[in-house]
Design a protein around this nucleic acid. Structure first.
Length: 117
DNA sequence: CTGATGACTATAG
DNA sequence: CCTATAGCCATCA
């Protein structure tokens, strides 16, 4: 896979995170076929621009924390977007046990099929 | 080619 | 919970 394909895979999977749910960078990397490329996910999201229609705000680190500075515009935007979807954010953190996105096998296979086009 | 960088993660103390 | 450390890996200067 070249860079373009990897970026597309990442964006595709992030778009599939349902409103009110969250995923980790590592989880998206795994789903997108990047193995341990969690950092690559963060890098791609950083190029989106805060007003993107891509639900980048639903991606948190493995501890359920918002990794953008809480006092930054982007950080506040992320927190606001999450809360607007009913996600409880405390001190920039979310209870993964309550909001972690569980991807069904069907959904995973469909994603693979979609990317194979 | 080399070294630095980061919206990362797991583990140990 | 916090810090430190070590992997990780595409990208960029």
């Amino acid at each position: 896979m070249n860079r373009e394909q990897r970026e597309r895979a990442i964006i595709d999977w992030v778009r599939r995170i349902p409103a009110g749910k969250v995923a980790s960078y590592g989880q998206i990397a795994e789903l997108a076929g990047l193995g341990r490329g969690a950092r690559q996910v963060g890098r791609v999201l950083s190029t989106l621009g805060g007003h993107s229609d891509v639900p980048w705000h639903r991606v948190l680190n493995s501890r359920g924390e918002i990794r953008l500075a809480l006092d930054s515009d982007a950080g506040r935007r992320q927190r606001r977007r999450l809360r607007a979807e009913g996600v409880v954010v405390n001190r920039g953190r979310v209870r993964m046990a309550d909001y972690a996105w569980q991807v069904s096998l069907d959904e995973r296979l469909w994603g693979d099929f979609f990317r194979a086009e």
